[in-house]
Design a binder for these strands. Structure first.
Lengths: 225, 225
DNA sequence: GCTCTTTCGCTACGAGTCGTAGCGTAACTC
DNA sequence: GAGTTACGCTACGACTCGTAGCGAAAGAGC
């Protein structure tokens, strides 16, 4: 729920918000769900370019004005509609760093194979190049949240002894953060580029080759850093 | 000139086309240049989302109908307008594979830092997910043409002895082609992701770290492939 | 020169989308 | 019950799209 304009849909209140709860008719949580679902359906059928606010409203069976009361525009709506899909990504423990990476690469590829995610992700990123607020939202809703997978995989590999532990002190923490950022960009970037720009399949064979490359690089990088 | 509808702008004819040359008033090459330049200017000022065909026509001082006579729509026009920028990329020989890669990474980053390229590239790729013809054009006009940089860098490194030579026979050639594809997706993907999705700068320090990672991976990959 | 062919600029048009305003009604809090 | 907010609906001006039709311009072929 990144692009919501005000707040407080119907549902359980948190903390002292119960006391300061706003009066009046609450927003329908069901409408929210219907709108986001309708947005995803419209993305599948029409793609980003031909998707219109009026069409989404009709699918969700809400008034067009209700859409504009909650989201500033198409960008924010679509971002919210697809951001939740990225939270489904997980990092199952397959016993080795190589298998962990291959697993997450294939999972990510499956997500990007869905028509609603691929058309929406690229389009929203494109719009974010001329909209700073949108860029911030993308970072919060997608980028930063998925870095957890890299952090998690790295910790596991360090526990297994496959990678050296972080250096001590603030310096070591900064170096570790830089490594996480770099690895994240390499993995996500390579998969996205292969799938959407090159337009070729991210299958098990490619994932294996990519992982081999990355793993060799990781050992070289970590041993000297 | 990928998205042109028919052909033959004013200019020197090639081969026997001189004899079979069509009669009638030729298309204005100056108008072509003005339109593409106007498109880039509009991209800078408005970004993909707010760019309109009417606006481009006004900037280029041509009639809107002239635009539609040459390009099917916004997608094709913008692709042609930015594709030429990618041809400026070169691979200067800096003496070592590491320096060559760092150089091309920084060059690519500088290209992606330009507002017209970043907003256009992502948007056109997004549209291509629901338009097969457009996807093919992107591959021809951008992707395949830039793979030359990888091929070139690889050959240089092999000549220097920094990488092992390709294996013999059709099998070796296929493996080499797969390697080129993989490396291309990793380099281009990582830089694009860092610059546009993560939204952080691709500076010399990042390029050095990335190159170190890739280089270690390359040696590991090539030695066993 | 002349004719033929194609492109050009211009105007006008219906269709579709945008985002908002206004209104009466529904839902919930105190 | 009073107060407040969300909702559905309609209508609207502004804008963009992509096309059609016209007369004029620019070159090719004779």
């Amino acid at each position: 729920m990144v692009g919501r304009m005000q707040c407080s849909p119907t549902g359980p209140r948190k903390g002292r918000a119960r006391l300061t709860g706003r009066t009046g008719r609450p927003r329908s949580a069901a409408a929210d769900a219907a709108i986001l679902e309708a947005t995803r359906a419209a993305l599948v059928e029409l793609g980003w370019g031909k998707l219109t606010m009026g069409d989404v409203a009709a699918r969700a069976k809400v008034a067009k004005t209700t859409l504009y009361r909650r989201w500033a525009g198409k960008n924010e709506l679509v971002l919210d509609a697809v951001a939740v899909l990225f939270d489904e990504l997980e990092l199952p423990d397959r016993g080795s760093l190589k298998d962990d990476i291959e697993g997450v690469v294939l999972q990510f590829a499956a997500l990007l194979a869905r028509p609603e995610t691929k058309t929406a992700l690229m389009a929203v990123v494109a719009e974010s190049t001329t909209d700073d607020a949108l860029r911030t939202r993308i970072r919060e809703a997608v980028v930063e949240r998925q870095k957890r997978l890299v952090v998690q995989g790295r910790q596991r590999a360090q526990r297994r002894g496959e990678l050296p532990p972080d250096g001590g002190g603030p310096e070591g923490a900064a170096a570790a953060a830089r490594s996480v950022d770099l690895i994240f960009d390499v993995i996500a970037g390579a998969v996205v580029h292969r799938a959407l720009v090159s337009g070729e399949p991210v299958d098990a064979a490619w994932a294996a080759r990519f992982t081999t490359l990355l793993l060799a690089g990781l050992r070289g990088l970590e041993s000297r850093d």
